[in-house]
Deep mutational scan, measured.
Amino acid sequence: MAAAAAAGAGPEMVRGQVFDVGPRYTNLSYIGEGAYGMVCSAYDNVNKVRVAIKKISPFEHQTYCQRTLREIKILLRFRHENIIGINDIIRAPTIEQMKDVYIVQDLMETDLYKLLKTQHLSNDHICYFLYQILRGLKYIHSANVLHRDLKPSNLLLNTTCDLKICDFGLARVADPDHDHTGFLTEYVATRWYRAPEIMLNSKGYTKSIDIWSVGCILAEMLSNRPIFPGKHYLDQLNHILGILGSPSQEDLNCIINLKARNYLLSLPHKNKVPWNRLFPNADSKALDLLDKMLTFNPHKRIEVEQALAHPYLEQYYDPSDEPIAEAPFKFDMELDDLPKEKLKELIFEETARFQPGYRS
């Protein structure tokens, strides 16, 4: 834990890192770190609560700039109880001085990944967590956004079992017609939660990839272990087919990539493993919904509104309290091709509203 900075004593240090967030945020305490930044909790002297502050230093890398800009653009436009918001952003007053960006968010005690390492969940908890994931996802999908990296560590939890989806750095506007060349190379989302079509096709992607990830998360809540822990690309596919069985001819016809289709045709026939054999203690309604989410063919996979209306979630289902976005989200430009200098300018502009004396 960093010592509390005395008023006016300059930035606090946390594990050798400068955290320049005073005077409003003090009493910093280390939480963890990701690929390009550290997260601390801090005391907000204005709202009198502890908050989470993520320090991001992305400006050396085009990919990190892209992810940072995506996350900020999306989260500043989203407003939903099951999606983490941005409360404040701290950065230098000029673009030349801006080396880091500090993002202030609600402090959540833990995440689903940490929880599943230590606790076996009751059916009631599984049901409530799944409902909140789908409630947040309904809003995301209504904005025409794909999260693309749903996994237990991106689901934040607090002691009252509130759940918030975080990390929109890989999110995209849904565009089933656009052929994202190089899709697989830039697709760094965790393999275990990846839909089979991501490994088999490169053309376009749809909201059904997020539903697949939610199915993987439900299976993990039922058993405290990942359902498809593939060691590499082909191993991942083999794990999936080992449980779902061989795809039907109709399902194979959806695979545009001939090499991928021929690979699947070359494999020995596998039978589907019954879900109640894998999860003998699970609620039968939970397994019915799991089956509809972990469907090989993305066109037959359940959609988020149908999933919310499934009998497993009937005690929570309330369409009048499951809000959607006001308007579909649009990125003005494809960020993939922009140089990091341009992305830095866009991050600077996007964060201006939090600067003292800002006038829109």
Rank of each mutant, 00 (worst) to 15 (best):
V39Q: 07
A3R: 13
Q17M: 04
V39A: 14
Q119N: 12
A171W: 00
A307H: 00
F296S: 09
G22A: 11
Y205H: 00
K54R: 06
D210Q: 08
N123K: 15
K114I: 15
D321E: 13
V304D: 14
A6D: 12
R301E: 07
R24W: 01
V51R: 12
K164S: 10
F228M: 05
K99G: 08
T295Y: 02
A35K: 14
C161Y: 12
E350Y: 04
S153G: 01
R225W: 04
L338H: 03
L107W: 03
L170Y: 01
L76S: 06
E33A: 05
H141Q: 12
L335Y: 08
D336L: 04
L75P: 15
N154C: 03
F348V: 12
Y312S: 00
R15Q: 09
E350W: 00
S223H: 03
I347C: 11
G215D: 06
W275Q: 03
I217N: 15
Q62W: 13
L338R: 00
P58L: 15
C127K: 02
T159A: 09
K231N: 13
Y64W: 12
D283K: 00
L258T: 06
K300V: 11
D162G: 00
A327S: 12
Q119Y: 07
L264T: 11
H239K: 06
L252R: 10
Y64T: 15
A9N: 05
A7R: 10
I255N: 14
V51A: 12
G34P: 00
C161A: 08
K285N: 14
E33H: 06
D337S: 05
M108C: 01
Q132F: 02
N281V: 08
N87S: 00
A260Y: 00
P226C: 05
R359F: 07
I165V: 07
Y131C: 00
Y205L: 03
F183S: 09
D336E: 14
Y139P: 12
A42M: 04
G16P: 14
D88W: 07
L335N: 13
Q315R: 10
E322H: 00
V104M: 01
K285P: 10
K340R: 14
M199P: 04
H147V: 07
R15D: 10
E96A: 10
N281F: 09
G215R: 12
N82G: 06
R24S: 13
E81C: 10
L137V: 01
F59A: 14
K259P: 13
Y36M: 15
E60I: 02
S202C: 13
I126N: 11
H310M: 12
L156F: 09
F228D: 02
I53V: 05
Y312N: 15
G245C: 14
L294I: 08
R225T: 00
H232F: 01
D291W: 02
R70A: 04
N144H: 09
I255Q: 10
L264H: 01
A5C: 09
Y102R: 03
I140H: 05
I84S: 07
H125V: 00
C40W: 12
I347H: 15
V18A: 07
S122P: 04
H61M: 01
Q355A: 05
L267D: 00
N271C: 05
D124V: 13
E326W: 05
T185A: 12
L163I: 09
K340M: 15
G32A: 10
E33L: 00
L156P: 00
L107I: 11
S29Q: 10
G215Y: 07
V46T: 11
T295M: 04
P226N: 04
E250S: 00
L289P: 00
K164D: 06
Y233T: 10
Y187G: 02
V39T: 14
D162Q: 00
W212L: 14
N271E: 10
G204A: 06
I140E: 05
Y233P: 00
P226D: 00
F331D: 12
S213D: 07
C65S: 15
V173P: 04
L346W: 01
R70D: 01
I89D: 02
P229C: 06
L150C: 04
A327L: 12
I243G: 11
E197C: 05
H299V: 13
A4L: 10
P323F: 01
A325V: 09
H269P: 06
Q249N: 01
E12N: 10
K73D: 12
I133E: 01
D44H: 15
L313S: 07
R148T: 07
A9C: 00
D111E: 11
M38T: 11
V145Y: 03
D179M: 08
P226R: 05
C127W: 00
Y25T: 00
E81N: 12
H299W: 06
